[in-house]
């Protein structure tokens, strides 16, 4: 844990050849280090998610958080961009995958990379982490309370998200799922459905549902924060990435 590290905002290649901003935090040693792509939640590319990104670096990862709302954020703050994206029904899946692929490429191109990259996402980013596990060449994925993996948004909502569980057959990496028993998006019934499908397909996965926790229990800046669930969740995430992202030279 006693690593020297730095954090910076840079530009990476994203979907459709667009350049988007990304927040990168990394240990300053020669490595080799595993990489983690941090997918932000619906409120956007905010301070809390950047803090999570730095925490991964402090634990010996090259961590990058692409701004999935960067195209909407020209001349606007992350909160304004998030509001605009929300009003338009969310980030299109194809665009997300292009941006996430760019973040994965960037991490693997770094001289201190061990070549292995995981993806973790929170809230809407949880669904996107699941999607990345099915569509991108990554080595591990963590879905933190992602909604609409198995179910569709109610038709009266403007969200354009479609369920992605049908893509699970293509999931090419282990998946860790962390959920709250009191959450309704996703509700425990939905996470049980996802778990059953992954079991049927013979995928490698671990699901944990915390009693007394609802949606967003990792969020230290919100009343929904649940220290016990969050502390255990962080332990599981770091252990999971430690097992699946260790390279030949170790991290």
């Amino acid at each position: 844990m006693d690593v020297m590290m730095m954090a910076e905002t840079l530009r990476i290649g994203g979907h459709g050849g667009d350049e988007i901003r990304a927040y990168l935090a990394r240990p300053l040693g020669p490595g080799p280090y595993p990489g983690v792509v941090v997918i932000h939640h619906m409120p956007g590319w905010d301070e809390a998610t950047k803090e999570i990104t730095r925490r991964f670096a402090a634990h010996g990862h090259l961590a990058i958080c692409p701004n999935l709302h960067d195209r909407e954020a020209q001349g606007a703050g992350p909160d304004d961009a998030a509001a605009a994206v929300r009003a338009r029904g969310g980030v299109p899946d194809e665009r997300f995958l292009g941006d996430a692929a760019g973040a994965v490429r960037h991490l693997r191109s770094m001289p201190s990379s061990n070549g292995r990259v995981g993806v973790i996402g929170y809230c809407s980013g949880g669904r996107q982490a699941f999607l990345a596990a099915c569509c991108l060449p990554i080595d591990a994925a963590v879905d933190c309370y992602g909604a609409f993996v198995a179910s569709s948004p109610p038709p009266e909502l403007p969200l354009k998200m479609e369920p992605v569980l049908a893509l699970a057959k293509d999931m090419g990496c282990p998946l860790l799922g962390l959920f709250g028993a009191e959450d309704s998006h996703p509700a425990p019934e939905e996470t049980a459905q996802i778990e059953a499908e992954l079991a049927r397909l013979g995928k490698t996965y671990e699901f944990h549902t915390y009693p007394g926790a609802g949606h967003g229990f990792f969020a230290t800046d919100r009343p929904m924060y649940r220290p016990e669930a969050a502390t255990d969740g962080w332990r599981r995430v770091l252990s999971f990435f430690g097992r699946h992202l260790a390279g030949d030279g170790g991290a």
């Binding site: 009003a87 948004p153 909502l157 403007p158 959450d183 309704s184 998006h185 967003g216």
Partner: peptide
């Protein structure tokens, strides 16, 4: 929970 409830006018 994330309600995702959005109305627009």
């Amino acid at each position: 929970m994330c309600t995702y409830v959005t109305e627009r006018a």
